[in-house]
């Protein structure tokens, strides 16, 4: 009768596990359970139950009498009855009477605990008044979690589309199109939004892809620098007919030794940032490499200002 399920966590990283366990704590049994429960009465025969199981493709049937749960018949019970020639006997004689149940308002985590402790793979679900309102199996839980995880992806997708949809129109200035982005400290989630938006703008102007890439990369590195090192700041982008000018101005610690900061491999980034694949001390030198003109000014303890210029007809 026992079914066991173990989460194969080898394929999940820490963040996935935390999402899954968070979802499982939030979820109540009533949100996950199968509601249309197929039941039998004690007067049915095990043969009847066998047919129900076959037709409905289920492996356990609760037994109900006068609206009360009085037992359960599992696939194992049926197999045993076929073995011993007792398949014609009544449910009343052969059902399991001591049924492990769960209430509809408890968390899925508690229900899974219950399944593991009892060794039962399916638990009839009762409401506050003790009526049978559903049945819960591992599969119900997995199916619901998959749907919820997919919703996380859909939300991320929508968010990305919205960001792209709203920010594409810059205000046309006297000489070019001006765009402005707020960059917040530690806001890794939105890292690259400015770059991605400018990339899209330039694509719509048919700027050659290699030039777009240099601008996008330089901006992304600058965004990352502000997110990682500064207290936040702004990025001003002006698209002229012949060039793109980016000014990244942040509040923050400033750079003690600009020459040292420009050196490849030098970094003051934290371990967390390095785990994300950044902070290798190559940002500034990469920005310089991508730009046609590059300047950095910094005042220790106050601000840093990067000026990046890329020619739109560049051959770099």
């Amino acid at each position: 009768m026992a079914e066991t399920m173990s989460w194969d966590t080898s394929r999940l990283d820490r963040k996935d596990i935390s999402i899954v366990s968070e979802l499982m704590y939030q979820l109540k049994v009533r949100e996950v359970m199968t509601r249309n429960v197929c039941t039998v009465t004690p007067a049915h025969t095990l043969r009847d139950v066998q047919h129900v199981m076959r037709d409905r493709r289920i492996s356990g049937v609760p037994v109900v009498e006068n609206n009360k749960l009085v037992g359960i018949v599992s696939l194992d019970d049926i197999i045993r009855a076929l073995d011993t020639g007792e398949i014609g006997k009544s449910v009343d004689e052969k059902m399991t009477r001591k049924v492990c149940t769960v209430h509809d308002n408890v968390s899925v985590v508690k229900a899974i605990d219950e399944m593991e402790k009892s060794g039962f793979g399916r638990l009839p679900v009762l409401d506050a008044r003790g009526r049978l309102v559903g049945i819960l199996t591992h599969w119900d839980v997995v199916r619901k979690l998959l749907v919820m995880l997919q919703e996380v992806a859909l939300q991320a997708e929508q968010r990305e589309r919205d960001l792209h949809g709203t920010a594409v129109d810059g205000s046309p200035g006297a000489q070019g199109v001006a765009l402005e982005f707020d960059i917040d400290k530690d806001d890794f989630e939105n890292a690259g939004i400015a770059s991605s938006t400018v990339k899209k703008q330039l694509q719509s102007r048919n700027v050659p892809a290699p030039i777009i890439r240099r601008i996008a990369v330089a901006m992304y590195e600058a965004e990352m620098n502000m997110i990682i090192h500064s207290l936040g700041g702004k990025m001003f982008v002006t698209i002229f007919p012949d060039r793109v000018l980016v000014k990244a101005i942040d509040r923050g610690p400033g750079i003690a030794d600009v020459e040292l900061a420009m050196k490849e491999g030098f970094s003051t980034a934290s371990e967390k940032v390095r785990e994300m694949g950044f902070g290798a001390g190559m940002g500034l030198s990469n920005i310089k490499r991508c730009a046609d003109r590059f300047d950095i000014k910094s005042s220790l303890g106050t601000w840093t200002e990067l000026t990046i210029e890329v020619d739109l007809a560049g051959t770099k």
Binding site: L149, A156, R213
Partner: peptide, 24 residues
Amino acid sequence: TAELMGSAGIVFVRGKYPPQEAIG
């Protein structure tokens, strides 16, 4: 990073599965 670099695609190794935000 792949988007900004115009990458053709991404392969995650060692059976790692990308987070849902990344998929979106």
